[in-house]
Design a protein around this nucleic acid. Structure first.
Length: 483
RNA sequence: GCUCCCAUCGUCUAGCCCGGUCUAGGACAUCGCCUUUUCACGGCGGUAACAGGGGUUCGAAUCCCCUUGGGAGUACCA
């Protein structure tokens, strides 16, 4: 049977960074093994689930380059529907079956009774597991009669009294001692089934072969194992991936900074970079590569290289990863991204050749796409001088005023809006041969004259990108420092 | 409380399953140097870790136990 994996978010908010990581692992695994990646919406919590969040989450997933093969918007008739809210009848059907086989029973306990029992258990230092013996469940006929009479009761699963073993792909052999959980509710008294139950019914019916999810579900799994058993279903492989935590080693939350994927999207992070970074948080590349994209992972991604311990979500390395992806990105795509940025008008109105050349030098030194316009402003368009100590020093050399005067006279004579590299070379030659300036005096002097700064990219590349009008303004200030 | 899980540089991790090749490797960050007559990029190098204690063994980061620390679950949430 072919591999089928799923990502099953609850539409109760934006796509979380942790959710994105789990989705990514599932996606990567499906791609690596030629399986199917399914998106299932777990919206049984009517109170918190909102349809708009479903759309938002899918959007974020797609932005990350994670596309599902099946889902509410891409149904496979054999498995649809994909929203748990639309599968109520299915859950009820199996609950009915469980009830008839005496594997589940109706519980008419009140909240108060349940609460009292829980407190008692806690007092006795026991797990507050529901003890069926505490209150004899009604007989089947009795229960049916009560239900028919309109009494509200929850359906409880009769938890077998024995230990369970899970061979997890990440955690290894996990033993759940007997009595770890008591009889648990699978259908609430309001008629809505509960997560741990729906999940199993769906995974069974959707032929899910591998469940890759967060470690927070590890304890739940014993309940699910019980249901698989009761339903006579084949148990899938499980991989419980460690959780992401904050720098204080606490559960990742808003106060740890940006935890929603859409924030990174707004900040123009590269989706491939985010995926790359997220992959590394808990999984390692067999050859210890740390820069790659999904395509590179196609042949190497597996379930064997997960780390069992939680990872601190720390953005510092993400910056670097993003920068690396910018460097290897082709100029055309990058130009497209920069063009989408608001403002930035100068860049947008330049020729393709200009933009290409500008991107060539700028992409080498930025970590974020959004830094590119800033670099254009600072490196190319800045008219005022950056009066550093170094620049003051350069201006104090006796050769510098001569350079400034000469360059100024040449620049004034330029009719076009840009200086060519050949023109610049010509000036350098004149300064060197006719005026006897050379070495540091020459290069730094020319740089100061043209850029008003003491540092920056290679002049031969930078100057042809700088508008003559800007250079003229710098020169004016250099000649009249006070003004 | 109880149950489950986890524990290698500041961070992400390799190594652990199948003990010796580990005076523990890589990456980010940090520091220094080199290169590019500047900056950045790049290159080179430094600082920096097997949580603690017991065992098993000729030998343990690797196997076992305990302690400590952290995480998760303990719901008619997902």
């Amino acid at each position: 049977m072919s591999v089928r994996v799923r990502f099953a978010p609850s539409p109760t908010g934006y796509l979380h960074i942790g959710g994105a990581r789990t989705a990514l692992y599932n996606y990567l695994y499906a791609k690596a093994i030629g399986g199917t990646f399914i998106l299932r919406i777990e919206d049984t919590d009517m109170e918190r689930s909102k349809p708009e969040y479903e759309a938002l989450q899918i959007e974020d997933l797609n932005w990350l380059g994670i596309f599902h093969d099946e889902g509410p918007d891409k149904p496979n008739p054999k498995y649809a529907p994909y929203r748990q809210s639309e599968r109520q009848h299915i859950y009820m059907k199996y609950a009915q079956e469980l009830f008839e086989k005496d594997l589940a029973y109706y519980d008419f306990s009140s909240d108060e009774e349940l609460e009292a029992m829980k407190e008692k258990a806690l007092r006795e230092n026991r797990d507050p597991v529901y003890d069926g013996k505490w209150k004899n469940p009604s007989s089947k006929q009795e229960a049916l009669a009560k239900v028919a009479a309109g009494e509200k009761g929850a359906i409880r699963f009769r938890a077998p009294n024995k230990p369970y073993v899970l061979n997890d792909k990440v955690k290894g052999r996990v033993v759940y001692p007997e009595n770890m959980v008591g009889d648990f509710v699978i259908v609430r008294s309001n008629g809505l089934p509960v997560y741990n139950y729906c999940c199993v019914v769906d995974d069974m019916l959707m032929d899910i072969t591998h469940v890759i999810r967060g470690e927070d579900h590890l304890n739940n799994t014993v309940r699910q194992l019980m249901i698989y058993e009761a339903l006579n279903a084949k148990v899938p492989e499980f991989a419980h991936v460690s959780l992401l935590i904050g720098a204080d080693r606490q559960k990742l939350s808003k106060r740890h900074g940006a935890t929603s994927v859409n924030l990174y999207r707004n900040e123009r992070y590269l989706p491939e970079a985010l995926c790359n970074y997220l992959t590394l948080l808990g999984w390692s590349h067999p050859t210890e590569r740390d820069i790659f994209d999904k395509e590179d992972l196609k042949d190497v991604f597996n379930l064997e290289r997960f780390s069992a311990s939680p990872a601190i979500y720390d953005l510092v390395k993400l910056r670097w990863v993003n920068g690396q992806h910018i460097k290897k990105m082709d100029n055309e795509t990058l130009i497209g991204l920069v063009s989408e940025l608001p403002g930035n008008d100068f860049f947008k109105t330049q020729t393709p050749e200009w933009r290409n050349a500008a991107i060539d030098i700028i992409k080498q030194q930025v970590e974020f796409v959004s830094d590119i316009p800033k670099m254009v402003d600072e490196m190319i368009l800045l008219e005022s001088l950056e009066m550093s100590d170094m620049l003051k020093d350069i201006l104090s050399w006796e050769t510098t005023p001569k350079i400034i005067d000469y360059i100024d006279s040449q620049v004034q004579a330029i009719p076009s809006s840009f200086i060519t590299e050949a023109q610049l070379n010509g000036w350098m030659d004149v300064l060197k041969k006719d005026m006897g300036v050379k070495g540091k005096q020459l290069f730094m002097g020319v740089r100061a004259a043209l850029t008003g700064k003491d540092h920056g990219p290679d002049l031969k590349i930078l100057i042809p990108l700088t508008p003559v009008a800007v250079i003229k303004k710098r020169l004016t200030q250099l000649k009249h420092p006070q003004a």
